[in-house]
Design a protein around this nucleic acid. Structure first.
Lengths: 353, 353
DNA sequence: CTGAAAGCGCTTACAG
DNA sequence: CTGAAAGCGCTTACAG
């Protein structure tokens, strides 16, 4: 393919017999152009298919209409849904997205990443990396005059000065556990995610506090630590049953681990939900076709992504208004509510033996 | 957050007591700078954390180091793997990625999309939308001096003048069907994807030609058309068994539909693989924990994405060398080989009743 | 080895 | 309503 020369505003101006200035006015729909001139220029633009160089425009306007998005593994359910939500909302609001993938949530590469995004003149940055271990520490020590607004998605470190959005993961644990108890379960185990993950911690916390609220003892032997994979779910089942053969329900911290549990239960000949109720988290497309179909907790992940874009847009506009004025960013922390989806893997009434 | 003023090359030059020109030389690691000057400037750059404005640089260099990527639904297995491959390779080669998501593969929005990417001065475009129906027609009628190279991923329309990369989907159908026949099956059904999709057509073709090659009659009643969802897999099973109760194997055109088939077989009390062998496509993370674990065909999707970046990079470099020279693009069509993963859902020997 | 000049393709004040 | 000038932040020739 030969690189065809792209038209410039100069050539359009010459063709129309006006100054580049006037072409610019037409391009930006300014009112101060005579109707005749406007039409003539407009016609030439359409005929030639001229489109202004956005790089040049960004340079003069000091605004790129580009959003930097840093995300973790598209192979994972949550991150990919959040990213979808971000992209849709961004496109809707006229932002282009500069995508950066990170290969491990505990990266030490934060500075390089943020700086390269800033160098590329993004108008704002959406940080959609799960909060794991100490990987949000940078947000607390961030320079107050970092040149662009940053919004955090998918975690909720209340110490930070940055705005953040997350699903209420503690509520996920509560909802799931309430449901299991309501179904008659009294020995409710949990297979957690890796406990360095904020999501995993919060889900465990929700499970724990709900048991306590119902006067059910929280026992260590009812906790198995998984790593989000189906394999770890199956292992978790082994561990839990070994530690309490009379276990009658398990809260799996995601659908994949729930799948591993179903799989293991089949092998062991445990009936689900007869012997064991199981609840997952995510409501993946497959969950309704597991055997039995999986009761799970649905998260508004796309909404979280879309909301992040709206927030960053507000920050961008605000920052332009109060150039060098006082810090106007409210570091709000928004939590979105999850929702239970009841299917066949959990009992909905007292145990029927 | 207040928008802190960003440093410019002028300020660095002033601080170092040199011209912006010299700073630029240091920035670009040019050899023609005295060691002392180099160090002094370098030091200031590091101390101040100055990073050059990539927009300005792109404007002067006529190259943005940005790749436009147009993809379809991250919620789908294939597209998200391909995108991951693209991102990793792009990052590795120093390209940033401008992500555009499309909501339906049969979009009529192609021109707007391509033009907006060109206006944003991307160096090349990777079109990773599945080939569905006539949605690649634009590639055939594309202007020969479209300003940037375009590479197609995930389809293989041999009429096009553009380079393309895809998984050999016909081979997928062949491999799966060969395996089923080798396991003793003689009445091999298929649940296809939507037949407007190139992938679905090719998989069906591979199934069809393999049966014929083995002297097995290809019958219409052995074909059910699905839509990639688990639901449609379950429906497909119903249809197929109704049309031939003696069916002894099914090639499901993806893992999700295979899951629906397993689910349906359980409900009907059909043993898998004893009564019915099942093979899927994709090798999703869940497949090994289905019940029984799923035999499936693995696709090198990440490789396809990575390869697309390498190809576009080559085109970009070539186009710069032969500026306005003769068209040097070879519209090669690369096919990548899939691989069978045998698990428990398919018989590996003659039927054991 | 270093800098003054010009230019990349636009837009923003400023005149008229 | 329209245009000449200056500038956004860099890099590319061109001198010396």
């Amino acid at each position: 393919m030969t690189a065809g020369r792209r038209l410039t505003i100069k050539e359009v101006a010459r063709a129309a017999g006006v100054s580049t200035q006037t072409v610019s006015r037409v391009l930006n729909n300014r009112p101060d152009v005579s109707p005749e001139t406007f039409d003539r220029v407009q016609q030439i633009i359409e005929d030639t298919g001229y489109a202004p160089n956005m790089l040049a425009r960004s340079l003069t306007q000091g605004r790129s209409h580009n959003l930097g998005v840093v995300a973790y593994g598209l192979d994972y359910f949550g991150p990919s849904r959040v990213l979808t939500g971000i992209e849709l909302q961004a496109a809707d609001m006229g932002y282009a997205i500069s995508l950066n993938l990170i290969h491990a949530p505990e990266t030490d590469d934060v500075d390089r990443l943020l700086n390269s995004l800033v160098a590329r003149q993004v108008d704002g940055i959406i940080w959609a990396i799960p909060q794991v271990g100490n990987n949000r520490a940078w947000a607390r020590t961030m320079s107050p005059d970092f040149p662009v607004p940053v919004v955090l998605v998918g975690g909720m470190d209340d110490q930070t000065a940055l705005a953040s959005i997350a699903i209420d993961n503690r509520a996920i644990g509560r909802i799931a556990t309430e449901h299991l108890l309501a179904g008659g379960a009294r020995r409710v185990g949990i297979v957690t995610g890796p406990l360095a993950w904020w999501e995993a911690q919060q889900r465990e916390l929700g499970w724990r506090e709900t048991l306590a609220a119902h006067g059910v003892a929280v026992e260590d032997r009812h906790v198995a630590i998984g790593d989000w994979t189906a394999n770890s779910g199956e292992d978790g089942l082994d561990t839990l049953l070994e530690q309490d053969p009379a276990l009658d329900a398990i809260f799996a911290s995601n659908d994949q681990m729930a799948l591993g549990i179903l799989h293991g239960a089949h092998r062991k000949g445990r009936r689900i939900p007869g012997d064991l109720s199981v609840v997952g988290v995510d409501n993946t497309a497959e969950a309704s076709h597991f055997w039995p179909s999986l009761t799970t907790v649905d998260q508004p992940l796309r909404n979280a992504g879309a909301l992040a874009v709206k927030m960053i847009d507000r920050s961008i506009l605000r920052a332009r208004d109060v150039r060098r004025g006082p810090d106007a960013t409210v570091a709000d922390a928004t939590l979105l509510a999850p929702e239970l989806v009841v299917r066949e893997s959990s009992r909905t009434g007292p145990i029927s033996v």
